[in-house]
Amino acid sequence: MDSMDATEILLIEDNPDDVELTLRALRKNNLANHITVLSDGEEALSYLFHENSPEKRNEPYTLKLILLDLKLPKVGGLDVLKAIKSHPFTAIIPVVVLTSSDLDKDIIQSYKLGVNSFITKPIDFQKFSHSIQEIGMYWLVLNRLPKELFS
């Protein structure tokens, strides 16, 4: 498959305003080319494990980063995180929780489930944009993943 079209970032976020702000921040930093947006936990699970799962597509994941909100309709963010980190095909994909919550409970729970990073969305757009830029630069540019996740 042509890696030009393959999804590199998966954004799982239910609030359309937050989606737009995130996309804008990514776009500003030229990181929004290969992004797929899903708006609830159920969709995320079916995207990752059914329709598009590597077994069905018979090809490896191209995902380099999953941006995950915690408060999602249907299946919550922590459950999605748990599913991702406990399935051998997806466990290796970096997951960054990007949420409004800064409750210790959520942070601890996320790390226990194996999250790679936990970011509280700043209210200030400049700061928010800056955070998104740093996340993108770090995980997509600086961070190393194996060339083929599953071969």
Partner: peptide, 17 residues
Amino acid sequence: SHDLRAPLRAIQGFSAI
């Protein structure tokens, strides 16, 4: 912490945009 902040971020963000 979660719900009250989201609209706030939207107001702040979109006025910044």
